[in-house]
Each structure stands twice: as structure tokens, then as C-alpha cells.
């Protein structure tokens, strides 16, 4: 441990406070009993799809396409997930298949 127990607790509470602020702020700004402005309702409708795209890219943000294996495992595994999902439409099959392929690629084939 680098910090004292009291300092550590303060740090945990600081991280908690920052994180919770980001979770509560929208609900505090637009309380349940009042109808939010149209713009906010519109954002609420379109954001899930946009955020899902952001999260896919975010998960892959540390992939290095310039160095071997040039992101090949990531690209193949994402393609496998998409193909499985398009073909079978079963969430668990798509995720398990893609993850198994990815593990095989990074542990055995491109190890």
C-alpha cells in the first residue's frame, strides 16, 4: 500500500463521488415529474444506437494496426461475431463463438 488507510478511503470516496455525479446528473437535471425538452427526448431516442457504436470502437481502441499482428485477431473475431449473429441471431452463440475464436487467435495462432 502506498497511501495510508485514511487516504485510501478518501480516494475511494472521491472516485465514487465523480462516478456517481455522472450517473445522477441527467436524472437531477430532468426530474421524473417534469417533461424534458423535446431535444433531450430526441437525444434519448438516438443515443443508444450511437453509444453502442462508440463502445465497439472504444473496446478496440488499443488495437495496433501498424504492428504485427496488425489487428487481424480483432477484425476476424468481430467479423465472426457479426456473421454468426446475422446467420443464427442468437446473442449467446454469437458472443461465445467470437470470443472462442479470438482466444484461439491470440493464444495459439498469433502467439
Amino acid at each position: 500500500m502506498f497511501l495510508t488507510p485514511v487516504q485510501t478511503i478518501i480516494m475511494i470516496l472521491a472516485v465514487m463521488a465523480g462516478t456517481q455525479l455522472t450517473r445522477w446528473l441527467p436524472f437531477i437535471l430532468f426530474p421524473e415529474n417534469k417533461k424534458p425538452p423535446e431535444v433531450v427526448l430526441y437525444l434519448g431516442k438516438v443515443l443508444p444506437a450511437a453509444v453502442m457504436g462508440l463502445l465497439v470502437v472504444y473496446c478496440l481502441r488499443n488495437t495496433n494496426f501498424l504492428q504485427a499482428p496488425h489487428g487481424v485477431p480483432e477484425v476476424l473475431a468481430v467479423a465472426a461475431v457479426a456473421a454468426l449473429h446475422w446467420w443464427k441471431g442468437n446473442v449467446l452463440v454469437s458472443i461465445a463463438g467470437g470470443t472462442a475464436l479470438y482466444m484461439l487467435l491470440v493464444q495459439v495462432i498469433f502467439a
Partner: peptide, 18 residues
């Protein structure tokens, strides 16, 4: 830093208001 790293939660809240 927690506010910045977690800023994406603001969007989640907006999207889940309803």
C-alpha cells in the same frame, strides 16, 4: 478524472430518462 473517464454515463442517463 472520474468525472471525465465516466462522462459517457451522462448520455446513458439522458437515454434512460423515459
Amino acid at each position: 478524472l472520474s468525472v471525465m473517464v465516466n462522462a459517457r454515463h451522462l448520455f446513458y442517463g439522458l437515454a434512460l430518462l423515459e
